[in-house]
Amino acid sequence: MLRDITLGQYYQADSVIHKLDPRVKLGTTIIFIISLFVFQGAWGYAVAALFLALVIKLSKVPFQFMVKGMKAIVFLLLITVIFNLFLTPGEPLVTVWKLTITKEGLRMAVFLSIRLGFLIIGSSVMTLTTTPNQLTDGLEKMLKPLNKIKVPVHEIAMMMSIALRFIPILMEETDKIMKAQLARCADFESGNLIKKAKSLVPLLVPLFISAFRRANDLAMAMEARCYRGGDNRTKMKPLHYEKRDYIAYAIVACYVILGIAAGKLMPLLVSGIIQLV
């Protein structure tokens, strides 16, 4: 039942993007997301689309996988579009009953849905091509300087990777307990809100118990192997920048410059051409 969620899933493939250092991918994703809000006008988004298409092509992950992640936010997207469409003040375009679609509203709605869509696809490219372990490793190394101001970076990264690792396990567990209670004729669907909330007790109590049991087992297993935090701890697969990582950074820098330039210069260029003609 719950197996179909793909958001945050890893897709195994042999591609340049998969091989990149997780720090590069993390950094690029953040820059990409910021760029979506900095770039202005259709030209900026055209550059972003081009960049995204290039990365997806290189990653060898089927496009349908990324669209699947989109399904989760369709509802959110719809609400954003509708609100922007009808509630932005400006030059009226169409009026239906009391609702008015304005030119600015239309513009906002289109740009926002592009932004949100690109944001989701962009970040799912990262999670699809990076294992959770690599991701937390990358994050740990990126945030290492914060250690100086007594931020427990290693512990945070460890907690993150454990949490990520446990999501599928707990999902499977929920599925199992749900089925076990359904086999005892439990009813999770009918009734009013209070009744529905009450019907979740037979699901949540065993789920919490099992989560605590697993946490306890894991803690024991870690202690049995003398695990103790981050000081002087070495990695099995240390992260090193390689040539391809520097090239990737260079490409990202080009992308940002190109995007800003396109947003600023292209409209001038176009109006210039129009004036000339």
Binding site: I177, K179, A180, A183, R184, V201, P202, S210
Partner: peptide
């Protein structure tokens, strides 16, 4: 189910 004791609540 397997390990049915996990369903007790």
């Amino acid at each position: 189910f397997q390990y049915p004791e996990h369903q007790l609540f």
